[in-house]
Design a protein around this nucleic acid. Structure first.
Lengths: 340, 340
DNA sequence: TTGTACGCGTTATCAC
DNA sequence: GTGATAACGCGTACAA
């Protein structure tokens, strides 16, 4: 593979001159410019970014560490990240942790060695280890989707508490009183926030004693399993609130298996919408998160930091969730919003 | 950020000695080893892979260029790639081309500059440009999902022709005669192979004159649009065969919109299954591709080439598709396989 | 067992 | 306008 030296030699100039021409920076006579460009062409010269990065200390590479790119929510986030990064001339490395903190730390070390310019992280659990490692090395980092306590980092996330509150409230106002929450694991902020919103809505309606929260995992299997447990509870819930898309799908499958009708016998709502292109059955009432926008905003924020357009205090961008009413929450019979 | 020089200085040894300890490579006395490791610890030394790569000419990085990671088929492929790569100590950069050849070429140039060790490519259209650039630079490349004509490259793909043939045949034996194919664009091998398989099955059954193929894009919108056109055809088809998951979903939505019943009024089958975790309505009869395995096999094959475990002739791995019968293809009333 | 010299490919600095 | 020199951080080849 030819180097800039080869190009220079062929053009009869010094390497630095070739560099100037190639990078369009500094002066160069027409004659020299042409000779260099021709040499580049003839040799099929491809600049070596490694060497450039070694000097410049910039790799134009970001890392995206998430739990599982197979989850359509994160897939969409990833697409947003890549689009924004690509627009700005950055490349994205992606890593799946499966919620495992060891994996997360392993990847992080690897990425620090690779000298990525910045990191986008969906922390497994509270994931402080990874955050601290990155901050210690002075590598800018933006957390996506989840809160982290007591760490000075930028965050882009969705209003899980507010979304869960609004949807739960909506259910209550539709007449449901016994609503079970099929949640993710404790220790993950989104799970905790969704529980908090759910509980706030119940409390506000004086339904605290009907609170019923199951903690599991953000997976289909766990959703099915929690559904079984929920339906065994006495008295059984009238509605299930699944804390993410996989849990909702697991619940849906279990409910069908049991020949329980939605929404006649049981209402089912969820957090995370599936992208329109994936919805084979537009049926579930959900709280939808702006996944693409989250990825895009996070990447832009990170790049703004890298390029000095943003500095100082950490920011927290909290995007609103949107409630999409479909059939699974039953007919709408709201009480009047304004009471006499 | 401390360098190996700093570590060496602090440990009172030469840089190369520190290098040997850190990489567990060559001899080092207990004493020296401990001093070096302590220095590493104290300084928070993180090796610089860039410098290492500059010397070793290996970046331990692969690139995955695909059309759209948002398509669950490719999402799953990507996950397979990342898992296999990570196991072998490689990191993966991902890029979305949206079937655009210019984007593809742009990414490719970028990746060559970054000196990725190898490339996994789902070519946009026939995508020869990218393949030739990579081969010209001597960068190993494995094509995923699609055939490419006249290029000496490794390929991992699924048997689209065979899958489409088998499913079409199944429909015919269930009694359907007028089957329309809602296809992707001409010039993409998967679309062409699926058409070929479909046509072969029709021909075999003497139904050539009923062949009805629409060419569009592998998108939901295109699926809806082709459905409209198909249903206007006289006489109208009895079954629709969608050439990928997005087309199937678009068709499904359009069909529901028109209040046409599946399968009573119209059967609908597709290529690509959705991952089980995404299926809210297990309904579509499909030809399922082993997406995860495709990604994994492709990455392994690429890494085997990189590490010299595989050499010589290009390989083509063609994985079988699996037919999954659900409800959308109507009741099963096969004729006897063996005729008297 | 440890160290010296050098090169990987590029660019910043300073000089002509 | 152009070039010489050095440095980015690391590891190979060879020497001690």
């Amino acid at each position: 593979m030819p180097t800039i030296q080869d190009v220079a030699r062929r053009a009869g100039v010094a390497p630095i001159t070739a560099s100037r021409v190639i990078n369009n920076n500094g002066y160069a006579s027409q004659d020299v410019r042409q000779r260099v460009l021709r040499a580049v062409e003839e040799l099929g010269y491809v600049p070596n970014t490694l060497a450039r990065s070694l000097r410049s200390r910039r790799t134009n590479t970001l890392a995206l560490i998430l739990t599982d790119i197979t989850n359509p929510f994160f897939t969409t986030v990833a697409r947003g990240v890549e689009d924004a990064a690509s627009d700005a001339g950055y490349t994205v490395i992606f890593c799946n942790t499966d919620e495992n903190e060891d994996e997360e730390q392993k990847y992080l070390n690897l990425l620090l060695q690779k000298r990525v310019d910045g990191i986008l992280l969906v922390p497994a659990r509270s994931g402080h280890g990874a955050i601290q490692s990155a901050l210690a090395q002075g590598v800018p980092l933006v957390v996506i989707d989840r809160r982290v306590a007591n760490e000075p980092v930028d965050v882009v996330r969705c209003d899980s508490e507010g979304g869960a509150y609004a949807l739960t409230r909506r259910l209550i106002r539709s007449g449901y009183q016994r609503i079970a929450l099929l949640n993710g694991p404790k220790g993950v902020s989104t799970a905790e926030d969704r529980a908090a919103g759910y509980l706030r809505a119940l409390a506000e309606a004086g339904l605290q004693e009907h609170a019923l929260v199951f903690y599991g995992h953000f997976t289909q299997a766990s959703g099915a399993e929690m559904t079984t447990r929920a339906l065994l509870h006495q008295p059984p819930p009238q509605a299930l609130f699944a804390a993410n898309n996989f849990i909702a799908i697991g619940a849906l499958q279990k409910i069908r298996e049991l020949d329980v009708r939605i929404p006649e016998d049981l209402a089912l709502v969820g957090f995370d919408d599936l992208p329109p292109a994936l919805v084979t059955f537009p049926f579930l009432t959900v709280v939808a998160q702006p996944a693409y926008e989250m990825g895009q905003r996070a990447a832009r924020m990170l790049i703004d930091r890298l390029e000095g357009r943003l500095s100082g205090e950490c920011r927290e961008i909290i995007l609103p969730a949107e409630i999409i009413i479909r059939q699974s929450s039953g007919p709408i019979h709201l009480e009047e919003e304004t009471t006499p």
